[in-house]
Design a protein around this nucleic acid. Structure first.
Lengths: 397, 397
DNA sequence: AGGGGCTGTGAATCTGATT
DNA sequence: GAATCAGATTCACAGCCCC
């Protein structure tokens, strides 16, 4: 009892004479930390997360990762254009009576999370526009200090089937410390290495969880919102050290636990649904810790730079009203078309994208508009593709 | 005075007998809108934006775009009067205080924005993690209904020089309507065209404002946070119609005004700093409006004039007795049905409209008969929709 | 063996006009 | 105001099967 565990000791063992001074400084700034032996490491606590967290000692965990209910407030059923049914999140755990009720719930679990976090620990929360603004404002009010908001850009999101809004293609994570002066952990070098020697940015392109990684039972998904391991992998690699204790109050099917085990972190979960707990324990038992060489293979692929024609309009490289000339060829007349504000072309009674207009005019099934259409640039006719190349050159990362 | 401006009239003019009923319905649901002549269009109102907005009539603008101060310490109203530094002990209290001041300021300008917006208008706010969570929570509390949160992913952000956090490579925009039931404007088809025939997503990759677009005076930038025109271009093209009134309460150097002029939208600005106003007016005067044909965008089928199937029969495009073939696919057998003189279909023991027959035969809740049924035309099987398009082309005004 | 085509599906605040 | 009906609407993968 009473042993002070310094996070720094897990990185490298300081020379003995330094320890004393560090301990002294530490004792002044923060309470004595709990020995790991007194923590329910590698266990999923049963029941409501607020109650469950009460059994965890104060200032004892290094990081909290929370994926709370989003409070989606969905309407009726939704069908895809092909008539198939969309399997939505209709679980009871995502139902709240009002924003006020959701806020009270948020304050309650955040208060417990704050209590169990070490002074230099950090908190991650993931959410969507339904809940993330409320969560963010509340945690600021409680004294958490936001370090970054991170955008998880989904490479394969579900489309907006009804064409009523922009495709909801991202979720937001908030990363914060216990306060403005806290010394949080950020493994800058690891992130830069992971990102091909470029600083890791606040937008992460990662696929959603499907395929073999998605837990299924009897052909249907065990949990409606299972997160991809790649997301937790990056979170933990960036903001915890080996041996750190990670707490997930909304454990679900245990993505946090599985990744913690693989990366040599300790974990604690809270989950009130038995079938989620069972699935999580089974999954984590099967997860194998990674060795160093395996870690280096986890680099995510970089997003290929794709430039829609519309971007050239928005950024002024091509002006609406410009006349484009269709590439001539064997007995082909020279077509012309005018660029409109949304990037569509219009020519006689034909209108559409650069590709479909090219195809229609030639009577071809398809056409690459980038090479078909020519545009005047600095006194010369050049294919659109040349302008795209100029744009890419000017906007390199 | 008292003229009712219907958004629908800018899309397509309904038959005269319909107009009367629409106006009546409109009068019941919302207050009479202000004629544009009574609005300070194309003007920058001097002074504090909350005061300035008070001079704008209720329910008079179609869209508000707001780029409020991000940093709590910067705004004059928000800074502590003595400017003193607070030590670590009282830091929490001070933070609560400044969050509170920022929240009050946010509620005040959002209340005025809500007042001047038409019931079917929409609001955009841009911010960073310092303020956007507070703004988002407050606007939800005020009854605004979030439609999307949009991530502006900067293609050339400033790096994190000290290597202490992730590179702050994005800003967040919130797009919301006046309430859950409001009929907001979303030009789905224009966005899809702009994005090379894929749905526009919630993450937008656009460069920051620099180069020739960046306003400079004596070699230094006029405004610290000038937004790129490409960002406003996409916002306005997506969520306003030609002729709509756009209000920007934090006008700065007038990006909103310049893009509004180019795209044929009306604009009103509020800005209290003289040098920003001067720079903005000069800039907007130099901006060239696009001509009519360049502004027009791809129309969605929803906006196209409706053609009842019966019309194709009456006008001879489809003959009674014609056999239609149901689109096959996804294990679907090839259905057939016969066209009757009144435009109904009959097939075995099923009869009804092209839509209801399609739905019944597939056992689906609904069906678009125009794309489901195929008809022989000039030796080829084509969807009914193709005949509808031919009819529309042949009967253009 | 490999490629092409068909099917299934994912945190979704997902229609609008007329009767 | 609820019910009815016309009709508009999807992207990236993974996992099959089949040739």
């Amino acid at each position: 009892m009473g042993t002070v565990l310094l996070k720094e000791r897990t990185r490298s063992t300081p020379a003995p004479r330094k320890i004393a001074s560090r301990i002294r400084k530490d004792l002044v700034l923060k309470p004595v930390e709990t020995p790991k032996a007194d923590l329910p490491l590698g266990r999923i606590l049963d029941g409501d997360c607020i109650e469950a967290m009460r059994s965890i000692p104060t200032a004892s965990v290094d990081m909290v990762f929370a994926d709370p209910p989003y409070n989606l407030q969905l309407g009726g059923d939704l069908a895809r254009p092909d008539g198939s049914h969309v399997d939505a999140v209709t679980n009871d755990w995502d139902k709240f009576d009002s924003f006020g009720a959701y806020d009270r719930f948020t304050r309650a679990w955040l208060a417990e999370a704050r209590r169990v976090l070490k002074p230099n620990g950090s908190l991650w929360v993931i959410g969507s526009y339904h809940n993330i603004f409320r969560v963010g404002a509340i945690l600021q009010d409680m004294g958490f200090w936001i370090l970054n908001d991170i955008v998880w850009r989904k490479s394969n999101p579900m489309p907006n089937f009804k064409g009523t809004r922009f495709t909801n293609a991202h979720e937001t994570l908030i990363w914060c410390s216990m306060g403005e002066e806290a010394k949080y952990t950020f493994n800058y070098r690891a992130m830069k290495t992971l990102n091909d020697e470029l600083q890791m940015r606040s937008d992460w392109v990662l696929p959603i969880c499907n395929g073999a990684e998605r837990l299924k039972k009897g052909g249907s998904k065990v949990h409606p919102t299972q997160k991809p391991e790649s997301l937790l992998y990056r979170v933990m690699l960036a903001t915890t050290n080996k041996g750190d204790v990670v707490l997930d109050p909304f454990f679900g099917t245990g993505t946090t636990g599985a990744v913690a085990k693989r990366l040599g972190r300790e974990w604690i979960g809270c989950e009130r649904e038995q079938n989620y707990r069972d699935a999580a324990m089974e999954r984590i038992e099967m997860a194998l810790p990674l060795d160093e060489s395996a870690i280096s293979t986890m680099k995510s692929k970089r997003a290929a730079p794709k430039v829609p024609f519309g971007t050239l309009i928005e950024t002024g490289w091509v002006k609406p009203g410009t006349v484009l000339t269709g590439k001539k060829g064997r007995n082909r007349p020279a077509f012309t078309a005018v660029v409109r504000a949304d990037g569509s072309l219009v020519s006689d009674k034909i209108e559409g994208s650069i590709h479909s207009c090219g195809a229609q005019l030639q009577g071809a099934p398809s056409c690459n508009g980038w090479t078909f259409w020519n545009i005047e640039h600095e006194g010369q006719m050049k294919p659109l593709d040349a302008i795209r190349q100029l744009y890419l050159l000017a906007n390199e990362d």
